[in-house]
Write a protein that binds this DNA or RNA. Structure first.
Lengths: 203, 203
DNA sequence: CCCTTTCCGTAACAGTTGTTACCGTAGCAG
DNA sequence: CTGCTACGGTAACAACTGTTACGGAAAGGG
């Protein structure tokens, strides 16, 4: 049995290369040859590691989800109280000073591709719903007495705010600097508390 | 002087076709031939109306901005008080029952393209800043005593929420139905009032 | 009615795309 | 060290891209 390869390592290498190309040159620049060049190999290896370009794309998409999930897990585990965990997870999703600026760009790229590709769309929905479930669980832990409807609305509002900030910052970083993003998120979380206080005070 | 054409009509026709193709097949499906077929002509006409594909793209992008601006103007003009105007403009930007569902998809497509194309990026920034200025003006009319910083933060938060809802709804309409989007927006606007009340009450 | 001039469909171009077939080669079994 | 086999680089493939050149057709002026 001669010359065995590490298939997993190859797939990860190529997925990372896919990611980098996508972040730099966008969706139209995402070529098999560009990926191969970035990975330091030829298209031959790419086509041996993945049967088709779409498979490569899907694997890279899965990797994006995996990384964000790991980061969210870490942020959540680092906090003891539910409110802190909520703030940490959302704050980590918003563009940090300069940790993963590319990630938003890649996310937008995949999102745009998902609008025309059912498989990518399915992955996107699964990832987003997973994120929604996480946020909902944390919000529910903060406000146990809220109705399901209010829980749902607040959760989706928070996620929409975060993703909106990410998207807009990806296209116009000067208008949406990291500081402002964090402040906006903090305000949203604060208003979540204030509403509750006012509501209970009024009742 | 024989056989004159209506250049403006042609450009509008082709921009609309570009728009439709972009909404249906996404960025990768946006081909000159696809646009020509959708417009009921051949690539010959396209290349006579626009010198290059990029020019066509930019014109289609301008048309997107123009339409949204016209709708926003109309929504704003239909209301007398500032708060109603703010709610109307934002509510019109969020996906209405079923008026312009494609628009979000097109917007995402252009946004993704803008990440790799400087000219498109410039148009995006201009359009977004124009929208920001409009919202800021309305928010300022609602809360004249707010500091610039708070104005800025609230404005960008509202816009981020709206765009986030749009983007997420474009990719997963079932999770973000129109009703929920409107409710989420209403809550954000309501909390804007509540915060003010609580703040002045505490002072 | 014809002629001229602009328009635009046709078809070819060179370049790039994803994909495939092929074969030299690198590394382990004996 | 030799031989074998899976690996992966090379190069060709057809399909498609944006773009260009050309020629027929159509419409208004004389």
């Amino acid at each position: 049995m001669p010359k065995q390869r590490d298939v997993q390592a190859q797939r990860d290498l190529l997925s990372n290369a896919t990611w980098q190309v996508l972040a730099e040159d966008g969706l139209p620049g995402l070529t098999l040859r560009a990926v191969a060049e970035r990975a330091g190999c030829t298209t031959g290896l790419v086509m041996h590691a993945f049967p088709t370009k779409k498979a490569l794309l899907l694997h890279a998409r899965d990797l994006l989800y995996e990384r964000t999930a790991v980061r969210a897990d870490a942020a959540e585990a680092a906090c003891t109280d539910a409110f802190g965990a909520l703030a940490a997870v959302l704050g980590q999703a918003v563009d940090l000073p300069h940790g993963h600026h590319d990630e938003s760009r890649v996310w937008v790229g995949f999102l745009a591709a998902a609008l025309a590709d059912d498989d990518l769309a399915e992955r996107h929905r699964a990832a987003n719903r997973s994120f929604l479930a996480r946020i909902r669980r944390l919000v529910a832990a903060c406000r146990p007495k809220w109705t399901d409807e209010r829980l749902e609305r607040t959760t989706k509002s928070l996620v929409a705010l975060v993703e909106g900030l990410n998207v807009l910052a990806a296209a116009d970083p000067k208008t949406y600097p990291p500081r402002l993003q964090q402040d906006a998120l903090a305000e949203a979380l604060a208003s979540l508390s204030v509403i509750t206080e006012c509501g209970s005070a009024a009742r």
